[in-house]
Design a protein around this nucleic acid. Structure first.
Lengths: 199, 199
DNA sequence: GTCTATATGGGGATAGAC
DNA sequence: GTCTATCCCCATATAGAC
């Protein structure tokens, strides 16, 4: 009992997803500016003009990708923290989840970080709150741990920054010949972060 | 007693330096692909065609910058290690110097890391040995430290990777509102790296 | 929603005079 | 070594038919 309207909207949603998927491939390989809308359209199996039915511009496509990437990474982090018990476990769980997300989604993560600077200032501002929430999440864990003595952290702000920096920088090199298993690297990074927090 | 030939070669060297300086500004702000050779030439006070006397292409300009950046960063690291005494001091000195270099030269460092992927495969290969030397330098310190017991490092390869990752990721965010002093961040990162190596 | 055709502007690199 | 002028190709985005 598929109505013509439903059929159309399904086709549309498919093209939209194809375009998003194609743009991840292109942006991560060639970079935002060197990627042409023709390339993206071709990878998605559409004409160059079809993109503009689904996205108002190439910038709009970039924004959707980067916003989605930030959203998913934050959700992985926040979910892990919520289920953890105490600062030590929370730190391990947070670093594990955040690292695993960036390893598993290294292409999208790389676009979210490397092409972030090519968002318009307005689009960057629309994502700022997620970035702040990520920072705050880790700072809170370290602060709680330092207060209760569960962790030993001389400089909470800087240690939080360093731990996140480590996790995020994964997207620059992952996967490599030596490391290509998201769970393995996540587990190791959780160990390293624990050491940074004095465990 | 300046001969015409000397005068000419001085003028030429100046233009070359101006072009390199201008391209750092442009590449770091706009990225390699979105930067036009016209922009670079204008910033250097030259006509669009003048660039091609000093560099054979825009790619050639990028390569010179990135090679120079890698070379300088490695030299800062190697010098620090050579003057240090023992694995603990070597680790501190290495992380301090490498971090300080990336903080001080964050624009060039950012180009060296972010635009590296846009070098031709041939140009990338011409820099590979410097990257390997940087990795090997830190691995050697950790290996020596683990052997003599001066350091406690469960996983030498991964810890070396993580420490370098931390230092390099500076170029993504440095300077920020909270951190803008290269020596201060270098000192703090040396502390953090020491913790990662079990001190 | 998708297509073909195209408007419109720009960009890397070169030619040739000085 | 530097300039002006230009070749030649390509990119984003839109127009209008189906």
């Amino acid at each position: 009992m598929t109505t013509p309207a439903k059929s159309l909207s399904r086709r549309s949603a498919n093209s939209r997803q194809q375009l998003l998927k194609a743009s991840i491939e292109s942006f991560v390989t060639t970079g935002y500016h060197a990627t042409t809308t023709r390339e993206i359209a071709q990878k998605a199996g559409l004409s160059p003009a079809a993109m503009y039915v689904h996205f108002s511009s190439k910038q709009d496509l970039l924004f959707e990708l980067i916003e989605h990437g930030h959203h998913e990474a934050y959700r992985a982090l926040a979910d892990a923290i919520q289920q953890a018990d105490g600062p030590r476990e929370a730190l391990r769980a947070a670093v594990y989840a955040f690292t695993e997300w960036h390893a598993t989604n290294h292409r999208l993560g790389r676009i979210a970080q490397y092409e972030f600077q090519y968002l318009t200032p307005e689009n960057r501002a629309r994502i700022a709150h997620i970035r702040k929430a990520i920072d705050a999440s880790l700072r809170t864990i370290l602060q709680d741990g330092a207060r209760t003595g569960a962790l030993s952290v001389p400089n909470v702000r800087l240690t939080a920054l360093a731990i996140l920096s480590l996790c995020i920088d994964l997207v620059r090199w992952f996967p490599s010949r030596m490391h290509s298993d998201p769970q393995e690297i996540a587990s190791n990074y959780a160990d390293i972060a624990s050491r940074m927090a004095g465990i």
